[in-house]
Design a protein around this nucleic acid. Sequence first.
DNA 1: CGCCACCCCAACTTCTGCTTATGATTCGTC
DNA 2: GACGAATCATAAGCAGAAGTTGGGGTGGCG
Lengths: 307, 307
Amino acid sequence: MFDSRHIRTFHEVVGSGSYSAAARALGYTQPAITQQMKALERTVGVPLFIRAGRGLRLTEAGEALARHAEVILGSLSAAQQQLSALSRLRAGRVRICAFPSANATLIPEAMARLLAEHPGVRVELLEAEPPESVQRLLRGECDIALAFGYPGAPGQQAAEGQTPPELVEIPLLEDQLTVLLPVGHPLARRHAVRLSDLTEERWIAGCPRCRANFLQVCAEEGFAPDVVFTTDDNLAVQSLVAAGVGIALMPTLVLSFMSHRKVTGRLVEPHLRRKVSAYVLREHLRVPATALVLDELRSAAAARVGC
Amino acid sequence: MFDSRHIRTFHEVVGSGSYSAAARALGYTQPAITQQMKALERTVGVPLFIRAGRGLRLTEAGEALARHAEVILGSLSAAQQQLSALSRLRAGRVRICAFPSANATLIPEAMARLLAEHPGVRVELLEAEPPESVQRLLRGECDIALAFGYPGAPGQQAAEGQTPPELVEIPLLEDQLTVLLPVGHPLARRHAVRLSDLTEERWIAGCPRCRANFLQVCAEEGFAPDVVFTTDDNLAVQSLVAAGVGIALMPTLVLSFMSHRKVTGRLVEPHLRRKVSAYVLREHLRVPATALVLDELRSAAAARVGC
DNA sequence: CGCCACCCCAACTTCTGCTTATGATTCGTC
DNA sequence: GACGAATCATAAGCAGAAGTTGGGGTGGCG
């Protein structure tokens, strides 16, 4: 197997016509070139040069190798160019898996800035609710997973159980939960409502994990809510609330981009919130494109502080 | 610039799916693979692998490099194959420059054996008289020069003056000179004739160097020959002798393949001879195809010993 | 004829790269 | 659930490679 450095040196020697010139061009001293070419001739088993007075002349083998050197160095250079593009963010693909409300808020905001600065980067977006998205990450189906979790619930972390050690969690924002009331509801005149004032209401619950968290919070407040409807479709929840079927808890993030005309959100006491984080394989942090997307997500989340 | 060894190792790792397997396949220990891949990732600037439990998974950059590795290793292997053909004598071209009588005798005999054993070797044959052939060698227009010289004549060596130091002389054979007489010549009955018996003959001289040597030899014998015709065409010389225009000196080598029906050769006393040698650039001795041809020429000459 | 450029050679030095040894982690299996 | 096999990472040590330095020979040119 040839040493690519020898090939490059050989090519330079052929191009410049002398050992000394090649040494100057490559930043070596002249004896280094002599040694390299000697080593190359040893591996080839045939002389490559014939000394002709002050200049060098190629043997038949030298001519052949010179032709091949062009090809070899060309393919090496092509590889280098593509990988350099990946490392310099002139190229790269990032697959993100996120939940719907992030897809409607954080992701578009981050993407706008990202694509403006790095037009060569490509993003693929998948939609999945939290437990699923992290599993996809672990299965290698995506590079970044956006998930939310409710604090204090061991079994309710983004991944099943605790976050696996090879996973890195990047906290993005704390999403306040609000009580969704139909306009005209007696409590809608207040700025914030107490959960304990809502024990007699009928409730509409969201996704399974949201519902589980909701039930737990109510239990801590000392009551069991009357859940009359369950759906993970945020639009359906809002419509049901508007129709007077019941009231619901809903993250502010959702309300920031979608709000039924006939519903209104009110802060709830005690403060409830879900934690939105990005997850990534630890080793993936070193992939430039992935790190870039994470940065933009962080920025987008920071711009929403208090949301 | 990538190190070709790293590329090869990377390719093997991708192919076998693990560092350890690649180490076994390439004859390294496992930590060596780890180090090489670390170094490769450092030069690329981007991770190539993501650890996935027991196996490895390629990053986007890894996938890209894997594709390039195929091309790079392919071009390296192609070069290696061609150069190996040259060094193993399955290919190779040798350009020989020789004088006419060698072209008619030594060369064909050597070529027959050479091409039988090494059908991949190609030979190009040029014709030139001695001073010219060695100059062509020095100019790089051929790889082997066959030339003859007369002993004891400093200015008459194969090359002008002494053989240059970068030139190697390979003596092939001593070519006896004969006196060419028309059949029926009074001296033709003898087995050998003395030069001093021919002082009154009319002579036909050959090529310039042959003629010069002839004049010098005659001078040493104490007479100046009567040269009535000069030509370097051996066939013409023989025809002139046959026609009774004069007699001539002619190398045995020429007579061995061409002899006019009406002439005959006789050994001459004192013994005169020309020295036939091959010349080659010293560094060219290491070129397998050239060395092979020289070997065959030596063999062909040895088979003609006493010629 | 002397100078300059080029290349070879030998010795020294530095450093890269491989190996050995050990520890950590994961997967399969009893 | 725990042990065993396999894999990769890390650290230390060593040998060989590769480069630089210094000196010499040679061809070409002013």
